[in-house]
Amino acid sequence: MAGLRKPDRGTVSVLGLDPRRDRAKIRQVLGVQLQDAYLHQALTAAELVELYRSFYPNPRSADETLDLVELSEHRDTMFEKLSGGQKQRLSVALALVGRPRVVILDELTTGLDPRARRRMWSAIEKLRIEGVTLVLVSHAMDEVNRLCDSLVLLDKGRIIAQGTPAEVTAQAQAADLEEAFVALTGRSLQDEEDL
Rank of each mutant, 00 (worst) to 15 (best):
L177C: 09
L154Y: 02
D155Y: 10
A140P: 00
A175K: 13
E179K: 12
L136G: 07
E125R: 13
T169Y: 01
E179Y: 03
A183V: 10
N145K: 12
A166S: 13
V182Q: 07
C148P: 01
G131S: 07
T164G: 02
L147G: 03
I129N: 06
A174P: 06
E143H: 07
V152D: 01
C148T: 08
L136I: 15
A180Q: 04
I160H: 04
A140K: 04
E125L: 14
A175F: 05
L147H: 00
F181N: 02
S138W: 09
A174C: 11
E125M: 11
E130T: 03
K126M: 12
R128M: 14
V168S: 01
L127K: 03
K126Y: 07
G131V: 03
E130G: 06
A161K: 08
Q171Y: 12
K156C: 12
H139P: 06
L184G: 04
E178Y: 05
P165G: 07
H139S: 15
E143V: 10
A183D: 05
R158A: 12
A170D: 14
K156Q: 15
V182E: 08
E167C: 11
L127N: 05
A183C: 09
A180K: 01
A161T: 10
I160D: 05
G163F: 02
S138C: 13
L151G: 02
D155R: 07
T164M: 05
Q173A: 15
R158E: 12
A172K: 03
I159T: 14
E143P: 07
R146K: 15
I159D: 06
D176A: 07
Q173F: 10
S150E: 14
L136E: 03
I160E: 03
R158I: 01
S150H: 13
A180Y: 00
G157W: 08
E125P: 01
D176P: 00
V137D: 01
T185E: 04
K156W: 06
H139M: 08
M141V: 09
V132F: 07
L184A: 09
A175I: 07
G163D: 04
T185N: 06
S150Q: 14
R158Q: 11
R146V: 10
L147I: 08
A161L: 11
K156N: 14
K156Y: 12
G186L: 04
L134E: 03
L127M: 12
A180V: 06
L134D: 02
L177A: 10
A170K: 13
L151V: 08
L184M: 11
E179V: 04
V135F: 15
G163V: 06
L127P: 00
M141F: 05
E167T: 10
E125C: 07
G163A: 11
L134A: 13
T169K: 11
D155C: 10
A172E: 00
A175E: 11
I160P: 01
A166H: 09
R128C: 13
V144A: 10
A180R: 02
T169R: 14
I159Q: 13
Q171K: 14
E178M: 09
A161C: 11
R146D: 10
I160N: 05
V182M: 08
A170S: 14
V144Q: 00
V132W: 01
